[in-house]
Design a protein around this nucleic acid. Structure first.
Lengths: 203, 203
DNA sequence: TCCTTAAGAGTACAAGGTACGCCTACGGCC
DNA sequence: GGCCGTAGGCGTACCTTGTACTCTTAAGGA
């Protein structure tokens, strides 16, 4: 056994998250991460094969931070808890949303999340293609929410612009955008998820 | 009035789409689009302020191609038709999915889509925050689907990998991934949307 | 003590976005 | 019919970013 590695994956991830949290996703460059670690730029390549691999490490870390130990309750409640934990875990580092969207399938720990979701759905009596659809619909809902929240939050500038549109041309839009500005992200997520769960239950 | 412009927005968009359809999204560079048009690279900057503006033009064009004239029927059916048309419009140029996700709010013609969706929801008796949630849930569902379809299609390589996982470690995942491989995208979309619509109706 | 492998540092290059400048060619107006 | 203002056409140049390559040094175990 020769010289041991001097950087752990966790250190790499911590540096990347520090950069993103401080300066935003566009600032996440190999040079910036290396500087954050006090290492030469090319030194990173001894730990990751390329920039994408670094991004996957970050996403994997976020997923791994989700506690999979669910409380007792109906399967609907358990789904609610699980998905909300994922939402909160991602929200801790808002800048990584695009990375999560892109790399979720490449992050090994996403398997644990999917397996857990499936086990709760199975509890709920779902199986076969029905279970596939339920799983994908829930995941899709979560991804869509993260997407919307990141690029077009209800309480964000986009909605404000909408609410100021001419009422004669976009009557419903202007009015609805005003209604929307008072809805905080967690309420939007909870109520939207309720819609999906109701649909799954009614099926 | 001096010399008229020699390129229209539609020509710009057509060139960009040609590049993306032929060589994929990463090939969408200012140089490539300029070459496609037989124009010097810097010539593009007389028509768009920067690369993002070009991307927004593309997204806007895709949205504008959606026919908003909906057939008679229940409001649920009308929503189904509308969202499916958007899905199909995007699917005609699979490479632009990430652009749609990023720029949907910046594309002026997205306003028409939202206004139309809202009018159908209003028909269905929804208003106020309930209508906000319904609208966001439907859009979120669509975005989530596009996202999943693009980066992790049920019939794609990711699912195949999942289906080959060790059953003792991921019993449900492996089994479900095998169930999933037979579900085509349009069926996945339709059945997922049915779940959401059922939830909205039951609410 | 030596060998194996990682570390550290620097150089170099290609790709891509975009600022800038020069000269040309239209088309309406005097 | 000549003039002027604006858009066109084209090329150059610079910065940022990812990444390949090389050379020398250091740290543990055999």
């Amino acid at each position: 056994m020769p010289r041991p590695r001097s950087l752990t994956d966790d250190q790499l991830v911590a540096a990347a998250l520090a950069v993103v949290d401080r300066d935003g996703l566009p600032a996440l460059t190999m040079r910036a991460v290396a500087r954050e670690l006090g290492v030469a730029t090319m030194g990173l390549y001894r730990y990751v094969s390329d920039r994408q691999a670094l991004e996957v490490l970050v996403v994997d870390h976020v997923f791994r931070s989700v506690d999979l130990d669910l409380p007792e309750g109906t399967w609907q409640d358990r789904i609610r808890v699980l998905l909300d934990r994922i939402r909160v875990a991602v929200a801790r580092h808002p800048g990584v949303v695009p990375l999560v969207l892109r790399h979720r399938q490449a992050a090994p720990s996403s398997l644990r999340l999917i397996e857990t979701t499936l086990s709760v759905l199975t509890e709920g009596g779902l199986s076969g293609v029905e279970r596939v659809i339920a799983q994908r619909t829930l995941i899709g809902h979560l991804l869509g929410f993260l997407q919307s929240e990141h690029f077009a939050a209800l309480s964000g500038p986009g909605t404000i612009v909408l609410s100021e549109l001419p009422e004669d041309e976009y009557p419903l839009l202007a009015r609805t955008a005003r209604d929307a500005r008072s809805v905080p992200p967690d309420e939007e997520f909870r109520r939207g998820l309720d819609v999906v769960l109701r649909g799954l239950t009614a099926g």
